[in-house]
Every structure is written in structure tokens, then in C-alpha cells.
Design a protein around this nucleic acid. Sequence first.
DNA 1: ATTAGCACTCAAACCCTCTGAGTGCCAAAT
DNA 2: ATTTGGCACTCAGAGGGTTTGAGTGCTAAT
Lengths: 349, 349
Amino acid sequence: MGLNDRKMQVLQAIVDDYVNTNEPVGSKALIERHKFPVSSATLRNDMAELERMGLIEKPHTSAGRIPSDRGYREYVDSLMKIDQLSASERDEISRKIDECLDEAGDLLKNASSILSEATGMVSLVMTPRLAGSSLLQLKLLMIEPGKALVVMVLSAGVVKDKVVRIPNFLTPDQLKEISDSVEKSLNGKPLDEITLITLATSVKETQIPDSILNQVLYETYTAIKQADRLDVFLEGEHNMLKLPDFSELRRAQNLLGTLSHDGMVAGYVNEIEKEKTGGDDTYMIRIGQEIALEGLEDCSFITTTYKVGDTISGNIGVIGPKRMDYSKVISQIDFVRYKINEKIKKING
Amino acid sequence: MGLNDRKMQVLQAIVDDYVNTNEPVGSKALIERHKFPVSSATLRNDMAELERMGLIEKPHTSAGRIPSDRGYREYVDSLMKIDQLSASERDEISRKIDECLDEAGDLLKNASSILSEATGMVSLVMTPRLAGSSLLQLKLLMIEPGKALVVMVLSAGVVKDKVVRIPNFLTPDQLKEISDSVEKSLNGKPLDEITLITLATSVKETQIPDSILNQVLYETYTAIKQADRLDVFLEGEHNMLKLPDFSELRRAQNLLGTLSHDGMVAGYVNEIEKEKTGGDDTYMIRIGQEIALEGLEDCSFITTTYKVGDTISGNIGVIGPKRMDYSKVISQIDFVRYKINEKIKKING
DNA sequence: ATTAGCACTCAAACCCTCTGAGTGCCAAAT
DNA sequence: ATTTGGCACTCAGAGGGTTTGAGTGCTAAT
């Protein structure tokens, strides 16, 4: 069945109209809004066929049709064409991104706000996955007796640090000794290959008593393990209340209840990004029932990847009602992603 | 008019009942639920009087009465008595706080979740105000050519840092020279008294060219200025949708729309905390119209202070419908505050 | 394969009535 | 002076019936 098949044009028209109006689309309305060179009765036949194929459905007998999940899927896979953002929309986004501080955290948080505002839906920005990146430098810095700062430099110039407690009587020199040994032995190691044992065997030939050494190494280890923590910025939940799709209180409750578990959402996005087959600049789209998270049956996820250097990447995307303008949203995400990539390059020099 | 005045008892009963049932309280219901030794007609007279005093009001002619903002105010100021949390509630909170990592950020974020879950409303936790605290140490650390880490140790052992860009050809020795001078001259200075000029005059007698020096100092300055940034954790917005008070979509939209500007909310709390007259362990309560933020007319704020060391403090509190169990919520906040104070002491050793 | 025509369906809007909790007020009782 | 019983009045909300109209499927003709 080709794209020019009239039935497919009808599906496309139904999706477009339904996205615009949020009302089930009937054969008559379809004829009026799109210039099909056939009568409404013919369209009714086509629609009956589309329904048999499982691409559209009726909310009730005497209503028009709405796309089913599979209908939306067909639409995004084969029918939709992505168009450019208007110059003014691009300028708006550019301006706001440019206003961000030269700092990854601030940039990502703001990017999330920008995206949720632009789309009128919920935006999702995740900090880069660092588990696979390597430790280039590690320094232990005495802050005051009993307290040290672990500074880690990872691939692509990402810096993480954490304050840890150390034995009170440890001297700066002793700390430096440990720091240097650890750094030497861990240098270049991927974060997720570093274990407590790697660490324990990294310091040899020292006068520092084992018990003290072990405490410091343990604290260092927790710092390393925490370095790859994934943060997630979910913004614009309140936007969803404005959408007619969630005007029923129950739906809205469900939705926001699920979205409040941002860690769960992030974990899920992480999962599906792993399954992704295309390159980094492709899109993961999950529609309705395809989303394996309770409470998001009426939503769609669209996510993609931004890059920090060559190897490190994070995710950015949108969660909205499945009745959304997929093409528009994708171009919005795409432009924000582009701006983030650019700005990160600038920050990291 | 004393507390034992029957009219005040009636007000108290009305608030209690209305908080419990979310239904306007009539004279008959009042007689049934509370053993007033008078007839309903008498209570009607009292209620008419309370209405004249502006403490209660009628949603419409043929309904019972609900407390007005001033009625709630009278209630919290004079009538309410705070009771202890049950042992199981205390244990629940204790357990969850104990599970937090030994790290301020994690603690505060989790405290916010815990509080919102316990109260079923929106919790608000703000990171400590650092503007008034002093800079005890400042170090510039070379990370790689062109990139340095500014590490600041503030009063009460709070550590902040930031990655900054520096000229590519600056050597670690030069950086250390600058770092040492700056530290010497800023040592002990309150953060908010440090200006770019203070910094510029802190480094003397150096071979480093002015233009390079100035760039480093400027970056250091921005790091210092960012150190006192106030973060805010607002959690549990979705809880509000479950409350009958916000079952009208319009109200819910308004509320969540306003709460999405967390910076604005934080700023407002900051304001009102400044006006506070009592000690740190007292409560700021703002009811309905008393809140100068659009969209929160049907809410109340309850906030108080937690401490980091002797001088530094942050805020913790709850935003809920003004029809809330004030006494219960206050004891919940109080216990969470107590646990935070304890845990912070432990973290900072 | 397409179309005109027609009987049928059903959610949503509309209107009307009824119900009952609650009120204010008055005159009698304490 | 305060309290009480009694009574007429109010009005939001629930319940029920009707109407409307967009939309459908099917059939017979083109």
C-alpha cells in the first residue's frame, strides 16, 4: 500500500485534524477541510477500512474517528514530514539559550524550561551518562581537618566533585600521597570498571595505617560512584493541565502522579535509548500504550541525544499527549538540541 | 473576648469541622458533632455574630459557614493547640531521613519529598542563605590548560565550587600565585561584601600581565557570586490535585502555574522570613489573601528555619490549601526540621 | 469503485422540578 | 438579657426527561 493510497491520505488528514481540533473527525468535516475529490460516502468507506486495519477508532457509535496508537505510529513512521521552525521561533530559542550561564548545569536546566515553554508540554532533559566515561584526573584536597574534597576530571572535560569526611589527624601530605597513588592507578579507567578492590590495590608502599587508608579509599570510592549520578530536569508539568486531553481530573492526577517520580521516568528513558538503533541524531518516539509506565497511556515520549564531546551523551525530549503535533515538536527538540551541542562545545572550549 | 467565650469555641469547631469534611458547617451539624449545651438557634445567633466580625462567611445563602481568612488567622493565633506526632509517624520520618546520604544536597532534596509525602501537600525546602556567610578559604586549582576549579570554603564548613575558564597558557604556578593572594586578602570576608574591586586590589606585586590577571579574577568573582545561589526544592505539586480544594481545573491550573515558578516562590519565602520577628524555631504562617503571590489565594504557607552551624540557616515549609490541619502540619514540619538539624550537625562533624 | 439517500445512534446540551440542608427572625420562655 | 422553638424562605445540586445534530452503516443506483 503506497503513500499515495487515498486511505493513507485520509489517515493523515484525520491525524492532522484531530491534533488541531481535539475532536473526533467525521467524514463530512474531512471533505470540508481537505479537498478530497470524492464524496463523503467514499470517505466513510475508506474510514471503515482504516478502522478494520486498526489505525483509527470511534470513541462511540455516533462520533467521528480518532487515530489509534497504531494510527499515530503509521503517521510518524510514514506520513509526517518535518518542517523547519520559523525564524522567529528559532530566534526566541537562540536568545534564551545564549542567556544561560557558561555552565552545564545551568544550561541543561534552562534548556528544559525553554523546551517546555516552546512546546507547551513537559520537557525532559537528562544530564550526560558518565558511567562509560573515563577518569582522567582525581585529586584529594584537604579542606579542613577531617574534611576533603574529591575532584574528578572525566572524559570530555567534565568535572565532578564531592566533599568527603576523612580521619581528623590525616595530614595534607598524607592525603596528597594517597591522592597521587590513586590517580596514577586509575588514570584512564572507565568509571564503571572502578571497584573498591581496584582502589584498595592502587596504594602500595605507604606508611599510612591500613584502617585509615581504607577509610579514605572508601570515601573516594563513594565519590566516584556518585559522580555518574543521572540528574533529570522535568519541567512544565503544569502545562499539561491546560491541554484538553487532561481536563478530566482523574487523568491529570494519574499523569502528574507518575511524572512526579522523575527518577523512574529518567530510568525508563535511559532504557529505551539503549534499544535505539539509529544514530545519535535520530529520535525515539513512544506512543501511548508503547510506553511501559503506568499513567502515561495517553502520552507520547519523543527523545533524542545531545553530545558532550565525542563519547558522552545525554538525552533531551518531550512528554506530551499522544495527540500532539509530532512534526512541530520534533523540530523544536531538534533545534534546542543543536543549540545545546553548540553551547557545550563553547563551554568546554 | 476570652478564649472561653462560646463564640470562640464555635469558631474553633467550625474550623475543625470544615478542615475535616470540606463542607460548609451548619448549626445543626455543629450541635451534633460537638456537645454544645445550647440549642442550634443559639449557635445560629453566635454564627451570625462571628460573621459580622468577619471570621466566618457563607458560600451562599442556604449553606453553612466556612472560616474566612481572618477566621483561620484567629484560629492559628489563639485557638489551635499543637499536638505531638504519633510515634509511628515520627519513626517513619526518622527512618527516611536516616536513609539519606551524608550530603547536604541529597538530604534537603529528600527532606522535601518526605515532607510532601507526610503532609500530602507541597513541600518547600530552600538551601541555606549563604550571602551573609564568610569566605574562609578559596583555592584555584588547575584542571587542564584553560580550565580551573574555584573551591570555596564558607562559614560552618560549607563547600562550594565552580569550574571556570582561564587563559590557556596560564601555568599552575601562576594560578597558585593568584589563588594565594586572593585567599589572603579575602579571608574571613562576608560573601556579600566581596566586589570585583576588592578582588582587583587583592593581587599586587606580580609579573602576571594585567589583562590575564583580570580575566582570572573576573571568573573567580563570578564563582563567588554564584556560590550563594539559593536552590529550592518544591515537591508534591501533584498532591494538590487530589485535594477537593483544587478539584476545579481552573484553580488547579492557577496553583500549579504559580508553583512552577519556583524561584519566585523561593524569593517570596525569603522576603517573609526576613520580616519574621520571633526566633528561628518559630513559624511564619501566611493564610490566603495574606500571600502576595497571584494564584495562591486559596493556599497557606507555613515555613520555618533550619540551621547549618550557628549563623547559617535555610527554610523549610509547606504550601497547602488554607483548609488544612494547621496543628498537624506544624508538628510534621517541626519534626522534619529537627531531624535535618541533627543530620546536618552529623555531616559537618 | 463511487455516490446519493435514508434510517439509526447516542453524547451533550437544555430545561424543569424536586429536595433538603441551612438560614434569619420573631415571639415565648428562662 | 439570653436562649429557645417555630416557621417561612432560599437556593445549590441532584434527578429526569426531551431535543438536537453530527456522525454512522447500509443499500440501491450510477
